[in-house]
Amino acid sequence: MGKDQILVRVRDLHKVFHRGSERIDVLQGLNLEVPRGDFLAFMGPSGSGKTTLLNLIAGLDRPTQGAIDVDGQRIDQMSEADLARWRARHTGFVFQLYNLLPVLTAERNVELPLLLTPLSRAERKRHVQTALSVVGLADRAQHYPRQLSGGQEQRVAIARAIVADPTLLLCDEPTGDLDRKSEDEILDLLQALHREYGKTVLMVTHDPHAAARAQRILYLNKGTLSAEPIE
């Protein structure tokens, strides 16, 4: 695979947490390559480091050791300010609990990433309408999160994640708080974003049903990755 086709390259990644005097090696020399346009699911037991890995690739946390290269940029060496700018431009993040701002309408929630761009009010509005249309909620633009179902809230959260057209879409247990019907809707949507819009999607899940929708699955256990589930 050509060098420019690899979007995410992780080399010898270590992440150590300290709880009191206890040292916890969550990631131990992990290596990973994610091609552009991939839909990759990370699976593994609780505490295996799935979310930690996703946070590191999203630039939300810093590795103890190792290198993370996204689209040719070493994000582990960036300053806090540069990293914030990089996140605004390159990542869209979907949380398990949606994490919409309850005081803002769906439209205003989706608009948030665009506030960091030089787009005009009219341009922002157009982008927001497009993103809400992609997730099938154009008619809910003026609704507040409390007026939406869980599935709809997560779709708004996905619209917020894609509105600025990020390089990477990172999803942390995106269906973990949903019923089966809503889960399927969200997974359909993620698949559509991958297939129709060519988005590179990294998804953390403990649900095999959700993971099955991904193009490929990697398993995390004891701080390392493997292509096969570990018994």
Binding site: E80, A81, W86, A88, L112
Partner: peptide
Amino acid sequence: TAELAVLKTIGFSNHL
């Protein structure tokens, strides 16, 4: 707290 964390995830800098 969670909302501010979301803003930072989106790309709002510490100073912003």
